[in-house]
Simulated assay, not measured.
Amino acid sequence: MQSNIKALPAIYLNGIYKRYGNNENNVEVLSNINLEIANGEFLALCGPSGSGKSTLLNILSGIDKPSLGYVVLLNKLLNDLAEKDLASLRSKHLGFIFQFFNLMPVLNAFDNVFYPLVLNGHFDTKAATERSLHCLDSVGLADLRDRKPGQLSGGQQQRVAIARALAHEPQIVVADEPTGNLDLATGDAILDLLLNINQQTGTTFVISTHSTQLKARAGRVVEIRDGGLAYDSAK
């Protein structure tokens, strides 16, 4: 008999507002955002610069708090969690990819993936070594693991950053303009990689982007304008 019970979303946002400043100089960045993101979705968050995309990413991942409304991430109400519990949740269950890679320049590709695993307590040294090598191989960089970021191209650096984000097997990956610092061909290759990971692992991806290529290929597109939800391809 088929169940009618609806699966819980990976991320649930209800009545999200974000304001900065005091009552006299109040700037509203987000206004009444209501959004559900299912497990396994590949969602592109679009909108012009200054529309609130990065702020929304920070709120849904527990880095920032809303002024009003509540966030449920992986069945946990973030509003009620202490900062150390939020940090633990992010460390265990979320991966982050950034536009400018955020790699440690003094470490080689392998160590940029390996050390976060050990320092965050995800794996012991042996398991972290195996996992780091596997992830670098999965993004096509097994032969370049000894190179430092300055010896890698932009696309190769982003592949290291992807390997680092995925090494602890997060349930959700949050990416802020992951192809924004890359040329068109390299950006397409990175998009191919992310889509393939999503399809193979079922990892949820939430990606802010200006890329028309990413927008065209994402499973779902949500657009933010002037701090509000202007478009949702799922509706």
Rank of each mutant, 00 (worst) to 15 (best):
N26H: 06
D232A: 06
Y231W: 10
V106S: 14
A230F: 10
D64W: 09
G227F: 05
N112E: 01
A38M: 14
N58F: 09
S91V: 06
D192C: 04
L191K: 10
G219A: 10
F98K: 02
L229R: 06
N32D: 15
L8K: 14
N4S: 12
L229K: 09
Y70S: 15
G180K: 10
F100G: 06
N196C: 06
F114P: 03
L45T: 07
Y17F: 13
I190D: 03
N112Y: 01
G62S: 06
V206P: 01
V222G: 03
G154A: 08
D232E: 04
V173K: 02
S208V: 05
A109N: 03
S88I: 03
G121I: 02
Q151D: 10
L107A: 03
A82M: 11
F114T: 02
L184I: 05
H122C: 00
G180E: 09
D124C: 09
N120W: 03
S153L: 11
M104P: 00
D176C: 11
R147N: 10
A163W: 04
A127T: 15
N120P: 01
N108A: 06
V106D: 13
E36F: 01
F123V: 00
L166F: 15
N198L: 02
T179R: 10
T179D: 07
F114N: 08
H122T: 01
S208Q: 05
R90A: 03
S233E: 07
S67A: 04
T55Y: 06
S132V: 11
K235D: 12
Q200C: 02
G202I: 12
G180Y: 08
H210S: 11
L56E: 00
S51L: 02
D176L: 05
L57S: 00
R145V: 05
I11W: 07
G202A: 09
P178N: 04
A44M: 10
Q156T: 12
E41S: 07
